[in-house]
């Protein structure tokens, strides 16, 4: 197969809902929306609580610790990841009870397993933007 041309990694465009989240990520903090009435978190960020339908959400900083719920080793790269394959993507359950998905760094495909302890880490997308990722919590 011909070499794939490397395109820029897609960067999120913050919205009025997600701006506080991305501002925090760029300071290496991870915020989740919390519904104080339902006493539950939710992810991804939304305009209301899926638990109660109320716009009563608070941003709370979380531990960033979790476990691998599932994973996949990406062999054919997505747009903006050409030349980086193979790379691992993990679905991770945070201690706060939400599930996230992102790249799993510092881990070989033969090392990853469901239930493995991981923690959040950070990726530079470009000079402007950082993104969240995971690494083994050894």
């Amino acid at each position: 197969m011909a070499e794939r041309e490397k395109r820029p990694r897609p960067a999120p465009t913050p919205t009025n809902i997600t701006q506080p989240f991305w501002d925090a990520v760029n300071e290496h903090k991870f915020l989740l929306q919390y519904d104080p009435e339902a006493e539950k978190y939710q992810f991804y960020p939304r305009g209301l609580s899926v638990h109660t339908g109320k716009r009563n959400l608070e941003w709370r900083e979380v531990t960033g610790k979790g476990t691998v719920y599932s994973y996949t080793d990406t062999v054919i790269p997505a747009r903006g990841f050409e030349g980086e394959e193979p790379y691992l993507i993990a679905a991770v359950d945070l201690e706060e009870g939400v599930r996230l998905m992102s790249l799993l760094h510092n881990c070989k495909a033969e090392e990853v397993g469901i239930g493995m302890a991981v923690r959040l880490c950070w990726d530079k997308i470009d000079d402007e933007f950082e993104y969240f990722a995971f690494e083994p919590d050894r």
Binding site: P12, Y44, Y71, T72, P77, M101, I114
Partner: peptide, 29 residues
């Protein structure tokens, strides 16, 4: 837009095949 442009595309997951890769590994578990 919504979750797709902010929380899917920047992760590098290979679209639907990546999503079903996650589902299949979990099913195998």
């Amino acid at each position: 837009r919504s979750y797709r442009s902010e929380f899917r595309n920047p992760t590098g997951i290979q679209g639907p095949p990546g999503a079903f890769g996650l589902i299949m590994h979990r099913y195998m578990h």
